[in-house]
Design a protein around this nucleic acid. Sequence first.
DNA 1: TAAATTTGATGTGTCGACAATTTGTTTTAA
DNA 2: TTAAAACAAATTGTCGACACATCAAATTTA
Lengths: 234, 234
Amino acid sequence: MYLANPTQPKAVTTADKVFEQIQHAIVEGDIASGSKVSEPELAKYYQISRSTLREALNRLEKCHLIERKANVGSRVVDCTIEGLLELYITREALEGMACRQAALNMSDKEIVDMKAMLKAHGQTQELKDGVAYYQEEGDLDFHYKIILGSHNKQLIDLICGQLYHLVRMYRCQFGMNSPRASRAFNEHFQIIQAISDRDGELAEMLMRRHIAASRKNIENKIAQQKLTEFNDKK
Amino acid sequence: MYLANPTQPKAVTTADKVFEQIQHAIVEGDIASGSKVSEPELAKYYQISRSTLREALNRLEKCHLIERKANVGSRVVDCTIEGLLELYITREALEGMACRQAALNMSDKEIVDMKAMLKAHGQTQELKDGVAYYQEEGDLDFHYKIILGSHNKQLIDLICGQLYHLVRMYRCQFGMNSPRASRAFNEHFQIIQAISDRDGELAEMLMRRHIAASRKNIENKIAQQKLTEFNDKK
DNA sequence: TAAATTTGATGTGTCGACAATTTGTTTTAA
DNA sequence: TTAAAACAAATTGTCGACACATCAAATTTA
């Protein structure tokens, strides 16, 4: 599963391309979360100079996929439960506000397009019920469109340019394939309705609940996993 | 006026130091907002190689003080009214949530310290009424403490590591020296109270209103400036 | 033996030079 | 005269080499 980020400018320079490759590798877990990143090693692997690689690393740091310490080096961020919850709390704040702004700033055409998209998703969902794969893609599409609809560069950059890389990483690595597809779909529908009514306050509230529900869902799932592990040990 | 960012790690490498110098220069307006940044020129000025300068530029980009385009170069972000309003809307979302989390996660000691700080500020304010200088510093102190009190790394990094550089830049360049000192002080007091009561919902609401009021205050001031300019022309 | 120091290997930070791209100017052609 | 093409200057992207800091193993010392 890999979905392009609609706000990410297409790669022109080699540093850009290598950045995208490493980004992909980290998100998908091919480069283990928490592992150290060796500059000479990676430079050799991608057949580029260290300068170019460092440029790529800088971009990875910008979207919070790696962390650097002076004179020591870079590490891939490690996926922890605390980190995941912190991420979702931040999403709740930012996407909630983005949704409010979208209700105020989206053009009528944008709203029509979103409704059409959601309708299309609803139909494929009926066909492929239970198969969360496409729904997953649809979910991200939905969120991206609302964020872009806020017409707020600051919000767009923070959420799409930074948070969502991490969101995708956690989704991949914790194997969260949207176990609540139909409920999420209904929530999406309500949100669109609020935006369509230009009700910013309600739109923000619904989006916050939507993300909070997702967070609680994860918390439960993890608690369940721990329980299973505990039982397996016995 | 320049205030250290408590979350910014102290500079160890030369790239770090140059970063801080340029950051300072941009925030204070010594390097004009919107102007192009020439790598050879700056490298020569600071007597460092272009590689080192580029490392510094990368950090400036991370805190949204410059923008880079491939094969073209870097520009200092330009301070526009729209940008300022977008920034404050983002602040409202993030700091509101940070304040809610602070109410949940701050230790009792942290709360006691904050109350003491606010009390001290109140006393200096009585002495130096009208002199917004210290109050300004106190305002940032207050906000930083709450953000850190959220104990949420994601929020802390986004707000302190990125947004606040821009906030300070706008404050310097638009000359916004807290014209509503005493009102802000009272609002701060209410917020602390809500945190002290562990009332996350109220804390978030008050912080959001506090920032929204600040935003509206700016909008008014700018509208007033425009009016003055208009009258001067006649 | 244990603690402290030295030393060596590895990795990061910085440098100067070359290659590739953009931009503004000049030249050419319609 | 205007528009397109070719050229020249300057700037950014990339490279390989060297300087310096860090960490671990080996040596010294108490």
